[in-house]
């Protein structure tokens, strides 16, 4: 059995039960973040989907795939968003290659 159970996502709201104030602050914040602002909820949904993948959070992937479908976001748009996340993630690994190069250059004259 996996550590992750899809049914647990439904229990997320119960987080408030063991710490009401902090839990509610979190959900207030969370809900405010996704409201229409300088970015549209549609754009925010795609960002959330990309981050869900870089964080590799199965709950968030389920939630924001469904959210995207509800908003009429196409699978091509979703996949492009995932690639943006993946590109940043791989870029973030690769850019550390400069550290390796610096170190080699310093140590190995």
């Amino acid at each position: 059995m996996s550590y992750y159970d899809p049914k647990d996502l439904r229990k997320f709201g119960r987080i408030t039960e063991w710490s009401e104030t902090l839990g509610e602050k979190f959900f207030d914040y969370y809900n405010s973040v996704f409201k229409e602002g300088a970015l549209t909820p549609r754009e925010k949904s795609l960002i959330a989907l990309a981050v869900a993948h870089t964080e590799m959070c199965p709950y968030c992937i389920d939630a924001y795939t469904k959210d995207g479908l509800e908003r009429g976001i196409t699978k091509e748009e979703m996949m492009e968003a995932v690639h943006v996340g993946a590109a940043i993630k791989s870029g973030a690994s690769l850019v550390h290659g400069v550290m390796m190069m610096n170190k080699v250059n310093k140590l190995d004259s």
């Binding site: 909820p41 549609r42 469904k66 479908l69 509800e70 908003r71 009429g72």
Partner: peptide
Amino acid sequence: GAFLPGDQDDL
């Protein structure tokens, strides 16, 4: 499919 419609005005 098995999901709800999003916001009517946005759609």
